[in-house]
Nucleic acid binder design. Structure first.
Lengths: 239, 239
DNA sequence: CGCCGCATTGACGTTCGTCAAGTCTAGTGG
DNA sequence: CCACTAGACTTGACGAACGTCAATGCGGCG
């Protein structure tokens, strides 16, 4: 089993164009590699971290697909995001030194562990890194911003259309088709993320099928008319 | 008019316990003061920055009350936050070098201008500052996180209750009453923030009055039963 | 093969949005 | 000082969108 011990580095990572090291020189890249103290494999349905857990590190997803969710007191939880390979997790934990949500793998996954204090030390040396962290956090702020706008002002069709377009765009940036995708999450999880009940998600999918906008076969989605989806998103109601 | 030129510094700022300098030594505090190149006075209804405007600086609110909003294509906009004295603005602009929303003063206000590149340079010298920026951005991520949960899963009463409690808490941290407040925004702006129509906001206020939970006289709010409000928030519907 | 979780579909109820009328308030100018 | 007005707010009647409850279908896994 010697092949299993091939060192996983940023250099041989297939999402290095999307992840933390974008725009760094190969020298700087090695510095980052040196800071990654560990990688963790997370099995399907296992948690990378959980609400209340002590914060110490950020995580970069090397491969796999996650959901972030809060499992509220009443038992049921709410999904707040679906991060995928090349994206970073854990920023919620910095402010109070504890994570405020769970991160659960929706398929077997692997992440790079980035201890924040090491990252901060390193960014004293590697100058672009400094700005880089700010950019990634700003991106997360903007992402949540967009979700807020969606949740506050869109109706079910608009939400689901925006959701599908967002997913397929991000997948396309990772080399996948821009018209086909496999959903890694249940209708309930989609609904939770979109602020809808699972039945509404299901009905809306059905409506899209009738209108020949998408082809839905359980979790396999084919986008037949991306322009129609974009049009639906754009007509998002005022408020 | 000599008194007008008194230098405004962090040292004599009455929100220094809440703002960027928390936890810094007086020496470090002076460093921060040296980095604040300018202060800006923003008149009621004027914009501190606007969507599309080039990003260069973060802003710390010295006094006054703002709303952040996106004025969408269709004319009407959506409010995404109500930052107040001691809080920071502008993180949305870092990622794409342009602001993605407007920041508008809801009363005459004054802000400290913090150019990001100077801030980054300074945090090479002043070590705690480094972590501090991360904490403040993390706080913003968590704040938006909470808004997402509200917008996705709460009904009108729960949203308004959460809104009032949040406002009064933040005002209390600034030395104001924990049971009385003056709303600086219209019903429409509240509704926009909460994902509700202004009529619904008005009706919900009325219901709270009937139940003797709050006393509402236009924009003057008196909280009669904070526990009842907290109870309403806690029973937020599942999903 | 049978079970169980996920998904779809239908009938019905609730909540909130829409439309509209009318009130209140602060600000303006005679 | 007061009438006038515009904008903010309140309230009511109605309708649309989504949630709720329930029955049924489907597929994967032991």
């Amino acid at each position: 089993m010697g092949t299993q011990t091939i060192k996983a580095t940023c250099v041989n990572c297939n999402v290095r164009q999307l992840c933390l090291p974008v725009g760094l020189s190969s020298l700087e890249l090695e510095e980052i590699d040196s800071l990654i103290t560990a990688r963790r494999r997370i099995k399907h349905n296992a948690a990378l971290f959980q609400k209340g857990e002590r914060f110490s590190s950020l995580y970069a997803i090397r491969n796999g697909f996650f959901k972030t969710c809060v499992t509220s007191a009443d038992g049921l939880g709410r999904v707040t995001g679906f991060p995928m390979a090349g994206e970073m997790l854990g920023f919620d934990g910095i402010v109070n030194d504890r994570h405020i949500c769970d991160a659960v793998a929706l398929e077997d996954a692997e992440v790079c562990v980035l201890p924040l204090d090491l990252l901060e030390k390193l960014s004293l040396k590697v100058n672009p890194l400094h700005r880089h962290i700010h950019i990634i956090m700003s991106r997360e702020i903007v992402r949540e911003h967009d979700v807020m706008l969606m949740l506050g002002g869109m109706r079910s069709e608009e939400r689901l259309a925006a959701f599908l377009l967002n997913l397929v765009d991000r997948l396309h940036a990772r080399g996948y088709s821009r018209s086909e995708l496999i959903l890694r999450m249940t209708r309930k999880e989609i609904g939770s993320y979109l602020g809808l009940k699972l039945e509404t998600v299901s009905r809306t999918f059905s409506r899209f099928m009738v209108e020949r906008i998408v082809e839905v076969k359980h979790r396999h989605i084919q986008i037949l008319d991306a322009d129609a989806l974009r049009q639906i998103v754009d007509q998002s109601s005022s408020l």
